[in-house]
Amino acid sequence: MRYGRELLKGSTEHLILSLIGQEPMYGYRLIKEMEKRSGGYFRFKQGTLYPALHRLEKDKLIQGKWERLPNGQERRYYYLTELGQRALDEKRAEWEGFSAAVNLVIEPANLAEV
C-alpha cells in the first residue's frame, strides 16, 4: 500500500492532466472521478490535489476559470492548455515506455524466452 502511495505521488500530475484533457473539471469532481475510474485504488488526502492543481496552473499547463453551474453555485473549472497537452503527450509516451519495460521484466513468459 505504501508502495502504491509512492507511485501515486509520482503520477498525480500525469493523472490530473489526463482527466482534465478528457473533459474540463473542478477539484471535487476530479477527486471523485479518479476514485471511480481506479476502482477506489487512488484514494488519497484530498487536500493534496489543490496544491498540485495550482502548481500545474502556475506552470501554465492548465487554466482555471470560475463558472456558474445550473443550480447557481460557482465552481472553478480547469482546462488543459496547449502547453499542457504537449506535456501530457510526453508523459503518456514516457509512461508507456516505462510500463512496457516493467512488463517485459516481470512477465514470467519473457523469462522463459531468455
Binding site: 473542478y26 471535487y28 489543490y50 482555471g64 460557482e74 472553478r76
Partner: peptide, 12 residues
C-alpha cells in the same frame, strides 16, 4: 484559493 476550497467542502 479559500473560495475554491470552500466549494470543495460544500460538495463533500
Amino acid at each position: 484559493v479559500v473560495r475554491e476550497l470552500q466549494t470543495h467542502f460544500e460538495d463533500e
